[in-house]
Design a protein around this nucleic acid. Sequence first.
DNA 1: CTATAATTTCAGTTAAGACAGAATATACTG
DNA 2: CAGTATATTCTGTCTTAACTGAAATTATAG
Lengths: 175, 175
Amino acid sequence: MATLTGVQKQYILHWGEMGTRWGINRTVAQIHALLYLSSRALPAEEIAETLSVARSNVSTSIRELETWGIVRAVHVLGDRREHYESMKDVWEMFRLVVEQRKRREIDPTREMLRRSLEELDPKEPGAEFTRERIAAMAGFFDAVTELHDQMKALPTGTVRKLLRMGAKVKRVKAI
Amino acid sequence: MATLTGVQKQYILHWGEMGTRWGINRTVAQIHALLYLSSRALPAEEIAETLSVARSNVSTSIRELETWGIVRAVHVLGDRREHYESMKDVWEMFRLVVEQRKRREIDPTREMLRRSLEELDPKEPGAEFTRERIAAMAGFFDAVTELHDQMKALPTGTVRKLLRMGAKVKRVKAI
DNA sequence: CTATAATTTCAGTTAAGACAGAATATACTG
DNA sequence: CAGTATATTCTGTCTTAACTGAAATTATAG
């Protein structure tokens, strides 16, 4: 079992807290942090010991991280256990998470809003008002989706470049 | 007490669920949804009855929404109770929330990463590796902050326009 | 200033989610 | 194919956060 340095502990604990604030299980986040900081793939056993959590907890959490696509199992010669390692590319990791949270949360919300607009009975009291409000929210989510798709289509650096250019809005508009 | 239509119920319940997935208290989210859909400001009492939650729970939740700056108390002539209403501008609401979550969560994380890099003892085993990893993460958070600041500085529509332009990356680069 | 309405705070309870450990299943080795 | 190592699933326990109701505080009206 790898003993953690102070800095590593600090990072892992902070990451765990961050996770809980964004709806991600603390252990899941901590395991990710540990693997991210690890220079070699770790077997479940070792993860459990290092973080002082149950082996079964690690199993579930790893599976969660695997479905996100940011952790994968690798094999080490002469060891039949699975060893787990984290993706190294930070941008790519966040891109994956954002894309999937969009699919799991944004998309169903748009769906709900669309359905609401359909189901709205114009005879209900205040229907017109309700429609306006829901349509405004739907418009926002549509725009976010559009934004997401456009960003996805661009190479990472380009987005930043474009925004930097945006500071000179007048010029850009003139193009 | 206003009875809710089916569409309103659907919206409020969904919004509550969304909240929990993003680390926002279910009741807080539901109250926001109710106020967002309401054509008039509502007193705490009525909110409590409509959503079937305790009056005190409403009090706490409203205060939370007030600190976000997306709900405010207004007064109705001839009624000494406070009535609460939600901001109407969807973009502005999300902008406020994003800005504050950045301050509460992203900024402290950057701080932690910076501190970690300072505290790293080069003599520790694997210090160089740890430094690389943390620096990569710090770079990401710096970039996100830069992105956030740049977007904040631009009028809403411009961001979308810029990204749409980005589809023609070559041309943009040539500018 | 007193009475009453409204709001907030606080202590205790409840509910949801996280977690551990046992039981089960799967995969590997000789 | 038997035995063993590893991984997963499941059930109950525990922790944490949400919520309630009562008590305390604050504000308003007469």
